[in-house]
Every structure is written in C-alpha cells, then in structure tokens.
Design a protein around this nucleic acid. Structure first.
Lengths: 190, 190
DNA sequence: GACTGACCAAAATAAAAATTTAGTCAAAAT
DNA sequence: ATTTTGACTAAATTTTTATTTTGGTCAGTC
C-alpha cells in the first residue's frame, strides 16, 4: 500500500492555513508542502473551499469531542468552564487557526475566513449556552439570558487571549483563567 | 458683534464626524453645513486633523467631567459603575462618535479614526483602573490586576453595546446594565 | 488507473489615468 | 483695516486599464 496522500494533503493544508490564513494559502504551495502533484489534491477535494471545510470540520469535531467529554463529567459549572479553558489554552492548534482566521477577517476581510470564524464561534456559543441553560435548571447559575451570557463569556475569553495582546505583553494561561473565573463565578466584589 | 463662526464650525464638524466618520467628512461639506466659506475654517483650525482633535478634546472633557462628578460621590463601586453606565447609555453623543470611529477603523482603517478611538479608550481605561485601585484599597473589590480588570469591563461594555448588534437585535439599556452588573458585582453563580 | 504539471480562464494585483479634496490666497465684503 | 470668501493648486484618492497570479483541468506519464 502506498502512502496516504489524503492525510498528507490535509496535514500540509492545515499547516498552511494556520500559518498564512485562507487566502495566502495557494494550492500550488499545499501540493509542494505535501510533496504531491497539484492534480492529486483535486482527486480528494473538489475545490479549495472544500479542503478548507474539511479542516474546519475536523477542528469542530475535536472541539465538540472535548466539550462533550467535559460536559458529561460530574462537575460544577465553574469546574467545567475551568477545564474547558484549560483544554483550549493547552492544545492551541484549533485556537491558533481561529486566531489566524480572525486576523485575516480584520485585515483583508476574506469571506471564507469569515465563514470559518463564524462557524467556530457558533459551535462555542452553542455549547456554552447549553451548559448555562442546564446550570440554571440545576440552580447552579442565576436566572439570566443564556445566549447573552454565553456571548459575554466568549467575548471575555477573546478579549484576554487576543485583544489584550495588541497593546500589552500577553497574559499567561493562569492569569487568563484566574481573571475569567473572577468575573464569571464570583464577581470582583469582596 | 457677529455670529460665533467658530462655534458654528465645531457644531457642523461634530455632526459630520458622527454621521460620516473622519474620512468621509470633507472640509467643503463642513463649510456648507456651517454656512461659512471654506477659508474661514482655516482661520480657526490649521488643518482638518486639528479640527478633529479639538472635537475629541471636547468629548474627552465631557467624559472626564461626568466621570469626576461620579467618582467624587460617596457611593459603592457598583453604584458608581451603574451611574457611569447610565450616563454613557443615556447621553449617547460621545458614545456615537466613538462607535462611528470604531466602525471606520474596522472598515477602512483610517489612521486618525484609530487615534481617536485609542484616545477615548485610554481615557475610559484610565478612569476605570483608578476607581478599581481605590476600591481595592477600600477592600470593596478583591485584590486583582486593575489594568486587566478595567480592560475586561470595557470589552464587556463594547461587546454588549456594539458587537452583539452585528448578529442580534440590540439589547435595551436595562438589559445591558443588568448583565454588566451580573458579571462584575456578583458573578453569575447562585 | 493513480498521479502529474503545463495550461487556461478568472481572479487578484499593480500601474496609469482621472477625479476629488485639503489647504492657499488674491479679491470682495464688512 | 480686518474678516470672509471661493476659485485655484498640489497631493491624495478613486477609477480604469494592463499585468501577474492562482484555482482548477486534462492530456500525457509512470
């Protein structure tokens, strides 16, 4: 059996998307990195977009599997959130793709990058909303609009992991975690 | 004594900057709105940038005066924050200039608009940081990094007042206030 | 039959032409 | 005499055109 060319291509494309973003990744480049003729890519993927989609699918699946594992564990809402933050901050590869795409949207507004960002955001928001709803039912969390609160948590996370870095030294993982918990689980008041 | 042409110009320019942003505001347009020859503008302001600066100065002063009045009142940290949110959400004109400039930065990246946004952000962050530091000393707020927490509060405010609107119906003032307080002063846990 | 890379149309970028605008200043108005 | 003005200019921006790059194909190689 010959080498798995599809895996090679996915690997190369992921690397390039994370490093250069959607637009600056060319099919020629991917074929070079994967050591494969350009035509070969098109035996596995109809278009560049489809290749991109498949990589996004994989990222979403990974995220979903992490989330489902965490959600099923019998922990408090706070502990689940902490574990989720840990997984995301620890295994940054999906996070990095997300950040790169978000940057591309800001800088040149690539429509495919925007779709990718939206999709990953939706996944995260959906998971958070679901968890918040359940926590409200269990009377672990105060009655509130779960959509709005999920949105706030995500924005807070993005503010600390990416926006803060535009004007300051990046915060380390533990400071990020501590500050998220400070706001979400206890409030900043004594 | 003839009419106050400088005030007329400032008024016209403010209106145009709020409505169209920095770049799409032309000096011809300002002179037309102010019913003044274009040359007259240049007897009061050396350049378009200087005119813009003076308007930013005015906005900063207003903000500062509101903030100082609130800060001096003998209220809890939470109450001060609520009052600040009220003033900003109620008297939106400065807020609207800020939002328009932020949009211009996103859309076309005008450097002067970016400077304006940065400046207003710095004012707000500085005030928040100061208040948080004092509240920590009074043991009203838990020990934490005041810069980071000020940043988080501002991002949360911007997330609810502007980013939320990109994908949803705008939240009304009271929902915004409630959600801010939910996170800041008590946390979302029961 | 899997794989390739020269090839093509379409999209993106760069260059050139055309338009718009910030800022000036001689003349008009006060 | 002092203030105000709007036609004017150089510089910046936008639009148009020329050039290059890139996604996708397919005749031919392995």
């Amino acid at each position: 059996m010959s080498i798995d060319r599809k895996a090679l291509i996915l690997q190369a494309a992921t690397k390039s998307f994370v490093q250069f973003g959607y637009k600056a990744t060319t099919m020629d480049q991917v074929s070079k990195i994967a050591n494969v003729g350009k035509g070969t890519i098109y035996t596995f993927f109809k278009t560049k977009e489809e290749l991109f989609e498949e990589i996004l699918d994989k990222a979403s699946q990974e995220l979903t599997s992490v989330m489902n594992r965490l959600a099923s564990e019998d922990h408090t809402f706070t502990q689940k959130l902490l574990n989720l933050l840990d997984s995301i901050l620890e295994f940054r590869s999906d996070h990095e793709l997300f950040v790169k795409l978000a940057q591309e949207v800001r800088d040149i507004g690539t429509v495919q990058a925007l779709e990718g960002v939206k999709r990953m955001e939706e996944y995260a928001l959906d998971f958070l909303r679901q968890q918040i709803e359940r926590a409200i039912q269990r009377e672990e969390v105060k009655p509130c609009d779960p959509s709005v609160v999920a949105f706030m948590i995500l924005r807070l996370y993005l503010a600390l992991t990416t926006e803060w870095n535009k004007g300051h030294e990046p915060l380390d993982k533990n400071r990020i975690k501590e500050h998220m918990i400070l706001f979400i689980s206890k409030g900043i008041l004594v």
